[in-house]
Amino acid sequence: MGASLIIFLFYIGVAYLIASPNVSKEYSNYYIKRNTSDWRPAKYSGSIREGFDFSRAGQPDFIQATMGLSSLERGGRWTDARLAPFAKITYQEPFSGELCLILHAVAVRAQTGKEVIVRLGSEEKRFITDTDKPQWYALDFRLESPAKTIEIEPSAFETVFGRYYRKIALGLYHLIIIPGKCADTEIHLSKK
C-alpha cells in the first residue's frame, strides 16, 4: 500500500500544478481563458484618428490587446460571444475629455433591432442596430476619468459552424476615436 500512497500523493501534487500555471497573461488569455483569437498579432504603424481597420491583418501599434473578437475574415472581424460576452479593445494610451466614437459595423439577423452597449471606461452609450446591412454609428462620450478600454456588447448572437464554432453578433469593419463632439468632427459619416 506504501507505493500506492506515494503515487496518490504525487497525483495530488500534479493537481496543484494544474491549478497553478506559471505563464504570461498573453498565454493565459489565448490558451487557457480563450477570450481572444489574437496570438501575438503583427503590429503595423497607424494613428488613432485613422482608426482600427478590422479588415487588415494584425493590429495598429496603438492597440494593446483585443478580446472577444473572432479571427480576420474578408472585410473585418466578428464579435464572438464564445470567446467573451463582449468585444474588448484596449489601447496603449488612455483617452480623456470629450470624444466621438465612430463604429462601422454590420449586425447578424438575430441582433437586428436590438441594443448594443458601448462602454468607454466607466461611461456607457447604447444604440440599436436597425438593419443587417453595414452601418456607421457615432457616439458621444464625455470621460470624467482617463480610460483606455472600449467594450462593445451586443444583445443577441447567432451560432455558426465552420472551422471554428462561434457565436457571432456584430461584424466590425472600422473603429475611430476623435477628440470633440461627433457633430463638430470633420468626418461626415454619410460620405463613407
Binding site: G13, V14, P21, V23
Partner: peptide
Amino acid sequence: ACYMAYLHFHMGDAL
C-alpha cells in the same frame, strides 16, 4: 501525471 508535471516545470502549463 508525469507528462503534466514535466510540462509544468518545462514551460509553465501542465495542461
